[in-house]
Design a protein around this nucleic acid. Sequence first.
DNA 1: GTGAAAGCGCTAACAG
DNA 2: CTGTTAGCGCTTTCAC
Lengths: 336, 336
Amino acid sequence: MSSIQEVAALAQVSTATASRALSRPEMVALSTRQRVMQAAQELAYQPNALARSLRQRETRTIGLIVSDILNPFHALLAKGVQDTAEQHNYVTFLFNSDEQPEKEARAIRTLLGHLPKGLIVVPTSGTRQHLASLPELPVVELDRVTGNPEATTITVDNIGGAHAATTHLLGLGHQRIGMIVGRQDISTAVERQRGYQQALSEAGLDADPALIRSGNHREAAGYQAAHELLALPPHQRPTALFVGNNEMTIGAVLAARELGLEIPRDLSLVGFDDSRWAQTMSPPLTVIAQPAYALGQHACEHLLGLLGGKRASTPAQMQLPTELIIRHSTGPPPLS
Amino acid sequence: MSSIQEVAALAQVSTATASRALSRPEMVALSTRQRVMQAAQELAYQPNALARSLRQRETRTIGLIVSDILNPFHALLAKGVQDTAEQHNYVTFLFNSDEQPEKEARAIRTLLGHLPKGLIVVPTSGTRQHLASLPELPVVELDRVTGNPEATTITVDNIGGAHAATTHLLGLGHQRIGMIVGRQDISTAVERQRGYQQALSEAGLDADPALIRSGNHREAAGYQAAHELLALPPHQRPTALFVGNNEMTIGAVLAARELGLEIPRDLSLVGFDDSRWAQTMSPPLTVIAQPAYALGQHACEHLLGLLGGKRASTPAQMQLPTELIIRHSTGPPPLS
DNA sequence: GTGAAAGCGCTAACAG
DNA sequence: CTGTTAGCGCTTTCAC
């Protein structure tokens, strides 16, 4: 890798001039500029980002921490962020927390060493604490929130989505609707549960605690929870299930299949978050879809906005709508 | 962010000693070391990776370029690489080429500015050229190869996999087996086609060019190709389809559904690469599974190995096995 | 075992 | 418009 010194030498100018010709062309005479450009071209000069950032005391990188890149929803978030960052000439450092607070803490520490200009994070349970000890780093919370009222957040209308899902089920005639929800220390889980309960009480029904199961967002937890709910005595067993996240829905589908329940004849199912398999599985799954890519885009735009000046502006809280997509996993309850 | 100067001041030593205490503890007296450690702790000192790398003239970062992070196969590759890198205290820069040579070129350029110690790349058609102009950067080609015999490559047994898929279909009695293959400038596509043709000729059949369609690896191409193949006159139309990649398989399934063909009664289908939707779709898809995560791990281990000394060693070419997973999308051909 | 000093590659004053 | 100089934060000689 050739340095700016070599470019300067070849173009017969000082390094300062070479630097200017490359970064602020208007400050340099046309002829010199051309000589420098040409030299840079010949040497395939690529500026050393480390040296530049060190000198300027700022980088063009942002950090992104998602909780599971294998989850297509998070992959989409990441792509939205990264594409947007790239458009603005920023580089993204992507980390996985795998829902583990220590991994997240480590990611933040590593990140910090690389002086990112900002951080976008899909929080886990430990995030608020990790963030509290942080310097003046601008942070955007994506999809989930830590509860810090100072934070800029980009989320989805979880309450509305859960409400729509439940109302849809209610409208089909279901009375005993079970919910498989995520961990109670994750904001999306509690919001979705709230939407579910709201819809229920609006319909004059009380949420039966026995019909609510909490799990850790993984397939196995959904499987386990569904098994428990579907093992209830017939007159108490739910005729429909609303599952609060992608991976757990898989588990629920598998459990239902295993029990020989046909969807939607014996059991109706609504998932939260759409995906490839939700569309291709049999029967195609009714879901609450989320604009994942747009979520990532907005998070990045906002972060970059935060960087661009109005630091003192009030923290933005953006909420994107969800959409109920009715496919074939929901129908009227079985006659009992 | 506090600098090493502040740590040194607080510990009442020179910056040189502070640096040593932190990075080479054995070079420093126990008592001083402890003072420095404590000071670092108090200040929550995090070394500036930029400054360090600039001085040491080497980073602890590697680059990774995949062609589509939204493809679960690539997400798994990425996770394998990143987890492994992390274990070795390396940071990964992840880029998407989206199969576009220019995007790949841009990614490489950006990457270069950050002085990665090595690069892992899932090549696209332009890669070999992009790489040729590169400095002495160690490179590992992952999943696909550019054809450069000097290169270190980590791939999968594509020929064997395609052979197994085709043989499976042949064993069920199929005679007219169509193939939907990827672009001919992508190594995996040509290898898979070769395996298919080998199996056919071993069975004494000639590969009928009319039964082979090439597409650009996206769902739409698979859809289009399947439509063409299934529109052939009855006595010429394939009774089974072997689709050479994940995304295109979706397209083929959709096309078959649209034509009212029931799988596997009217049409057998084998896909290359397993995934969530392949398992949950109806009927569950017979596939050639690939060890994606392990692929990523090995690529990273190899790259790190390249860095650790034996630079002159012969280029490694590692090939991992694939596995035929028989589910329910394949069966005997319809009686015609 | 420790400190002083130099320098990685770059850009931002400051002169001229 | 251009060159000289200094210094970002760190590690590494080289002395002592």
